[in-house]
Design a protein around this nucleic acid. Structure first.
Lengths: 336, 336
DNA sequence: CTGTTAGCGCATTCAG
DNA sequence: CTGAATGCGCTAACAG
């Protein structure tokens, strides 16, 4: 491995001078600068960022933790975050918690031992509290993405879950639906709670009764509670529409419905939160509340970098990004 | 920051003893081991992996470079790679080249200065040669994913592009299509060349003439060459079917087709390489050659880790994973 | 079983 | 404008 000493020797200067050339600081004569540069090229010198990190006490590595790498919502966030990080000269250490608190914990340990400069953190849920506190204890700056965690004060980039849910459910109500089921995420997750609140508000506003037996809680990653769906559908007065709290759940539910021979939207309407990125463009089918995922990533990263590089520690900020109702064909007028 | 010296002092031992406890090597009395462990807990000690890397000359970080993070094929690879890396105790530094040689180069520089232990590398194309040679020059082990690069000998995990393409095109021919266009990636990319070879073979086998005016080359990431499509469709004898060389191109082409008021498959059939992951499950529409993406990731990672941790340097291996023809509804019988 | 010495590659003092 | 000494946190090699 080539070190600054190798190039110092060959250029007939001290290692310190080489270091100065690399970092462009300190006054150096143009002559030696050029000479050093030349030797660096010749020897194909590459700075060792580990050594650099060790003395500088910063790594220029940021971490992005998402909860589901197969969900287009999160991969779009990742692209935004990556673009913003790259622009600012940071590398990205990437983690995927798979909606699993323990995997998340593993990643936090990694993050801590890697001494990253900051973390863009999409929590798995309220349980993430400890993981986040761990980060705080070790003074790693972070920005929280997508889900609020009670007990943690930090910069926040969120979607407007309540409002988006309300719009979606009101859309169903406008279509004449009165028995609307909700396939929700875990109550441990802030977005799931807020989306349920939006669901209830839509009912209240429109004078519809709220029936908690119509709400199922599963893991956001996928729907696999066939028996719950069965009992939902076999109620005396079964739902005519379903609000899925995110895109992955919508996919799962629709598949389950089709296995039962039910047509969407013919027999039952379905709407959901979050879109499907370019993959969904082939057959635009689902009516969704689409969130600006790319912006989640860039904005979150900007806040994080600001916090890391800024001279003053900013107040905690809370950015709430609106979602857009995109009406397609998975929900239709109720035929009485 | 807590160091081994802090805990050494508090436990009344030397730093070396602490190091031994951490790494579980060297004989240590149960008593001191327990005492040291206790202090580590109390002080919430976290090893500094930078310092560790510096002396050990390895980072326990692997890098995964993919070419399109919004493509489900690659995110599924990412998940496989991540799972395998995690099992072996490696962290993953993640990069997305966006099919851009220059971005790829930037990532290679990052990789080099981060001194990662190895790279799982999906090249953007033949131009990646220099980037890969750069890696070789600095002795970073790597495994190549998805696309072969002439001039580079390395472990390879590929799909069977030629065979998959042939099956897809023969499927169209079976449906009576004779004028089949191909929307292909750049000729700089091995998979694009092989898929075109498969396309030609299907023609040859079935005694169909080959017309190169039916083949368009664009960037794999997305289709945006409307004029090329126009001239394709305005030929005296326009194509009745299109073979898109990957999923992203299929999406783009179908959108463009629809903008022109053409129905798929009513007016024109479309098939493509690669599936859409769970996102595509909502409305299974496209007839595809599906590749085992998750396996690409796990196998590639296994080869890489073997190469890094193995005592002997293995011969270069070349794994070719088959693709599966999944017939859905985007292609149909030609109605004469 | 445990401690001492030395050095990984680099940048921050402080002197010239 | 340039150099020498020192230490970031850790472990390998050698002593004891």
């Amino acid at each position: 491995m080539i070190t600054i000493y190798d190039i110092a020797e060959k250029a007939g200067v001290s290692a310190m001078t080489v270091s100065r050339v690399i970092n462009n600081n300190g006054r150096i004569s143009e002559a030696t600068r050029k000479r050093v540069r030349k030797v660096m090229e010749d020897l194909q010198y590459i700075p060792n960022s580990m050594a650099r990190s060790l003395v500088l006490q910063k790594t220029k590595i940021l971490s992005l933790l998402i909860t589901d790498i197969t969900n287009p919502f999160y991969t779009t966030i990742a692209r935004g975050a990556e673009d913003a990080a790259k622009r600012a000269g940071f590398r990205l250490l990437f983690g995927n918690s798979d909606e699993d608190y323990l995997k998340e914990k593993d990643y936090v340990d990694m993050i801590l031992s890697t001494r990253v400069d900051g973390v863009l953190f999409a929590p798995t849920g309220d349980h993430s509290l400890e993981n986040l506190q761990q980060l705080q204890k070790h003074q790693i700056p972070f920005v929280i993405l997508d889900r609020e965690v009670p007990g943690i004060d930090a910069d926040l980039v969120l979607g407007d879950s309540k409002e988006g849910a309300r719009k979606l459910v009101e859309h169903l109500i406008d279509f004449g639906h009165q028995r609307i089921a909700m396939i929700n995420g875990s109550q441990d997750v802030s977005t799931a709670r807020l989306r349920q609140t939006g669901y209830r508000e839509a009912h209240l506003i429109n004078g519809l009764p709220i029936d908690d037996s119509l709400v199922i809680h599963v893991n956001y990653r996928d729907f696999h509670d066939e028996s719950a769906l069965d009992s939902l559908l076999s109620q005396p007065s079964p739902p005519t529409a379903i609000f899925a709290a995110n895109n992955m759940l919508a996919v799962g539910v629709i598949q389950s419905l089709r296995q039962r021979g039910l047509q969407v939207p013919g027999d039952i309407s379905v709407v959901c939160f979050d879109d499907f990125g370019s993959a969904g463009a082939i057959s635009p089918f689902l009516t969704v509340a689409s969130q600006p995922a790319y912006q989640f990533g860039t904005l979150g990263m900007q806040l994080l970098i600001e916090r890391i590089e800024g001279d003053v520690v900013p107040e905690n900020r809370k950015i709430i990004l609106p979602s857009e109702l995109i009406i397609r064909s998975s929900a239709s007028m109720l035929n009485h």
